[in-house]
């Protein structure tokens, strides 16, 4: 059995016929026994009709004209604003800044890595020369197989005189006893040229 509270809570569903048959029968039974709810039902139905038949409010005759003016005014204002603004950093979207920074970072990292790579590799310089640059040059004897013919040697006086202390070893030109085999590799003209090139680089 339905009570008044339930009736009030679902009266719109009853009016809109949004309930099943059994529920509908319960509503009708309750209304037969409850004059208050019967009156409420009638009043709400009447109000619904009143609302639906309320006088229609029409827009004024100038409505379309005013609307067109508003649209034109808005369009002109936008155009004027865009001219006034011209170029402004504020108009650049924020993601463009981020993108520019990212590109800059990538380029920087690329060039840094590339320069490091060329430094460490030193293409064209044999490891022996590298060692001579970095350390006290060790006396490396040429293998016996590679004998340097004395006549092809540069003048004996062509001594590698470097301003750094590492190249203080000067071959004694008068020492005729020194055999070709024991001469250091750095007296080889090819190597001397390479050493000079490397030194120029530094």
């Amino acid at each position: 059995m339905m009570n008044c509270y339930q009736f009030k809570n679902f009266i719109s569903s009853y009016i809109e016929e949004d309930i099943n048959f059994n529920r509908r029968k319960q509503f009708e039974e309750h209304m037969q026994n409850c004059p208050t709810c019967q009156l409420l039902h009638a009043s709400i139905l009447q109000n619904k009709k009143r609302l639906a038949s309320l006088s229609k409010i029409a827009v004024s005759d100038q409505f379309m004209h005013n609307l067109q003016n508003k649209i034109l005014a808005d369009r002109n204002a936008r155009i004027r604003q865009s001219f006034q603004n011209g170029f402004s950093l504020k108009r650049i979207p924020s993601f463009a800044y981020g993108f520019a920074i990212a590109v800059l970072a990538v380029v920087t990292v690329f060039f840094t890595l590339q320069s490091q790579g060329t430094d460490s590799m030193n293409p064209g310089i044999p490891p022996v020369v590298q060692e001579q640059i970095n350390q006290q040059p060790p006396v490396v004897s040429q293998p016996r197989a590679k004998r340097i013919v004395p006549s092809q040697q540069p003048p004996v006086n062509n001594v590698l005189v470097a301003d750094d202390t590492r190249s203080q070893i000067k071959p004694d030109s008068s020492d005729e006893n020194v055999q070709d085999d024991d001469r250091p590799v750095r007296h080889n003209p090819d190597y001397q040229d390479k050493i000079r090139t490397v030194k120029k680089q530094y």
Binding site: I11, S43, N47
Partner: peptide, 16 residues
């Protein structure tokens, strides 16, 4: 929405 409409109808009746 259904609940609001129902309550609005009841309230409108009271106001009237």
């Amino acid at each position: 929405v259904k609940s609001r409409i129902n309550r609005a109808r009841l309230r409108l009746q009271e106001e009237l």
